[in-house]
Write a protein that binds this DNA or RNA. Structure first.
Length: 575
RNA sequence: CGCGAGGUAGAGCAGCUCGGAAGCUCGCCGGGCUCAUAACCCGGAGGUCACAGGUUCAAAUCCUGUCCUCGCAACCA
């Protein structure tokens, strides 16, 4: 059953530039997207993987001010650092860009113009709080004042922490700007709203068609919106940092970040391959789009962005909105202020094995519910799975081939096919069927299960060695028997390198060239189908093995705990 | 009746969509092997699948109710 090559576009949620990512973002967006993209390339599909940073919005504007930089300079600095971290983690973006580009501005303005032209916008007058000093509109979380109910003086714009009551921004007494603490003033302004209510029927149809594709929690979270009914949503803001709204009377307004950010997926695609690629990936119904996001982003990717796309009528909607849950850390939430977590800026100077880290993270991906990172788990996964099962199998196989046969077995499948016993047949069955089963799991974005199956695959190899005991065969003079066993093991080793390559790309590439002595890379285009073939040539010579992964002891773990727990503080950028 | 997630062997978890003899990793006990990074393989002990009802020939899995735990200001995916 040969599958046709698929066109696939993978996106990972744009990261807000106001800080550097912690493991949560890696585990929910970058890494699953990367594993998925790598698998599909290896499978032979035509994949591109894009992401970047979301540069606009109030917080980054204020942060830039705080460190004495222009917004452009600040976001560029942050974008560069974030990109370095992605590279360190071996996230294989075809393009990692940002939203502060000409291409993005054009794409966003054009996107808006289409919605406008299609009649899906309305104008509304509303009052807002404005800070004359910082020249920005103050959203609920950037303003405080006196609670109209209990008189608490540090109440937020829409809710009081002391009495818990919620209210309208209008009711807050003597409001002040959270940034400069000066009085905020009330202003009346016009804003543009997108008529989500008009789009709801069409959107709902799309969502329903995804019932069996999306993860259950994504589907149910999305459907909750329909029960209450979608309402027009404001997409403009009164701040000086963002993309200008291209309408008369709106010269001083910009688009709300959540309007333009997802359009970034399109503009970054355009940056990568021009209009032609946009056409090929966003306007071609044969291209499937996968959005990898954290659960906090589900609403934006399953409701707002698709609604906008439907109103714009120019681009295709996603095939799958892959919403991940959250990662906790040693039983607690990640927290910068409490220094709970692993903060990726620390990875840059750490000697932690990125592949081992990736493998552990995949094993605990919060696919269906929140999960927990523990150093104990990391240590266990590295020592028991990667060293003991996976790496050990390569080591055993290659060692015996080298020690006893000078690295070359001088046989192939034709030489052994008439002398197969039950154990051999089980081994052959595993090599022929498991790569496809594992691939199926990857393509269904069930990464944790795929990883588990890969480790089970390695265990089958170890058990086979145990049952056949080639070291005894050699001792007893059954050289052909030993060669047969090792030939099958070598073919399994090849398969194991390929199927694990989406998760541990560096180590598998290393063993591929340096130890197995093959050409190319195990994660090369179209390599997947080679995994299930038992076809290594007679004269193939392997090299001496070398341990793939290093064991972790408590001392090293303790050092990582110290090294990796420091959140990045933007104040260090201060001039 | 705020919202959401969860309660499965000592620990951590999978299985629940599409009911059909309780599974994985670690730990523990016993055995085997010595090719391998004190790695590997086999066997065993250990669970009334939170509780109570219901549907069914059959329920961890579906339905109803109850109890308990965790998250829901900000930094933060």
């Amino acid at each position: 059953m040969e599958n046709k090559k698929e066109k696939i576009l993978v996106t990972s949620a744009l990261l807000y530039v106001n800080g550097l990512p912690h493991l949560g973002h890696v585990v929910g967006c970058w890494l699953p997207g990367d594993v998925f993209a790598r698998y599909n390339r290896t499978k032979g599909n035509d994949v591109i993987y894009v992401s970047g940073t979301d540069d606009y919005g109030t917080a980054s504007f204020i942060s830039a001010k705080e460190v004495g930089m222009k917004p452009e300079e600040f976001i560029h600095t942050m974008n560069t650092k974030i990109k370095e971290i992605a590279e360190k983690l071996c996230i294989s973006f075809d393009k990692f860009s940002e939203t502060n580009t000409e291409t993005h501005k054009e794409t966003t303005v054009d996107f808006f113009n289409e919605i406008y032209k299609n009649g899906y916008t309305v104008e509304k007058e509303s009052t807002m709080l404005y800070c004359e000093h910082d020249k920005i509109a103050l959203a609920d979380r950037f303003v405080y004042g006196t609670c109209p109910y209990c008189g608490y003086e540090k109440a937020y714009g829409d809710q009081c922490d002391q009495c818990g009551k919620t209210y309208e921004l209008d009711d807050l007494k003597s409001p002040k700007c959270s940034f400069c603490e000066k009085d905020a003033v009330k202003k009346s302004t016009k804003h543009i709203y997108v008529s989500l209510d008009k789009i709801q029927p069409e959107l709902q149809k799309w969502v329903e068609s995804k019932k069996d594709v999306w993860r259950p929690h994504v589907y149910s979270m999305t459907n909750k919106w329909f029960k209450e009914g979608l309402k027009p949503r404001c997409i403009t803001r009164d701040i000086p940092w963002g993309i200008q709204v291209p309408l008369k009377d709106y010269q001083d307004k910009v688009f709300y970040v959540w309007f333009d950010a997802p359009i970034g997926y399109i503009s970054i695609t355009k940056e990568l391959g021009g209009d032609e690629m946009v056409k090929d990936r966003w306007q071609n119904k044969d291209c499937k789009i996968y959005n990898f996001i954290g659960k906090d982003n589900i609403d934006f990717h399953a409701i707002f962005f698709p609604s906008m796309e439907l109103a714009c009528k120019k681009y295709n909607l996603a095939e799958n909105v892959v919403g991940f849950n959250f990662l906790n850390f040693e039983g607690q939430k990640f927290s910068k202020s409490k220094k709970v977590g692993i903060f990726c800026n620390n990875l840059m100077n750490s000697d932690i094995d990125i592949d081992a880290l990736r493998a552990y993270l995949v094993s605990i991906f919060p696919e269906n519910k929140d999960s927990d990172f523990t150093y104990e788990g990391f240590k266990l996964n590295t020592n028991a799975e990667l060293v003991g099962k996976y790496g050990n199998f390569f080591n055993r196989t290659l060692n015996m081939i080298n020690k006893n046969f000078g690295g070359a077995l001088e046989i192939d499948y034709d030489d052994i096919k008439n002398s197969l016993d039950e154990n051999d047949n089980e081994m052959i069955e595993a090599i022929k069927t498991l790569p496809d089963q594992i691939g199926e799991l990857f393509s269904k974005t069930e990464f944790r299960m795929a990883y588990k199956e890969i480790m089970r695959f390695a265990s089958i190899g170890n058990t086979y060695l145990e049952k056949t005991a080639p070291w005894s065969l050699i001792k007893n003079g059954d050289i052909n028997g030993a060669k047969k066993v090792l030939y099958l093991c070598l073919n399994m080793a090849k398969a194991l390198a390929i199927v694990a390559s989406p998760i541990i790309p560096n180590r598998t590439a290393e063993i591929w060239t340096e130890q197995l002595n093959f050409e190319g890379r195990p994660d090369g285009q179209d390599m997947w189908e080679k995994a299930s073939k038992i076809n290594i040539s007679k004269s193939h010579k392997v090299n001496l093995p070398k341990p793939l992964f290093a064991r972790l002891d408590d001392e090293i773990i303790e050092r990582y705990k110290q090294e990796l727990s420091h959140p990045f503080d933007i104040k260090t950028l201060k001039k």
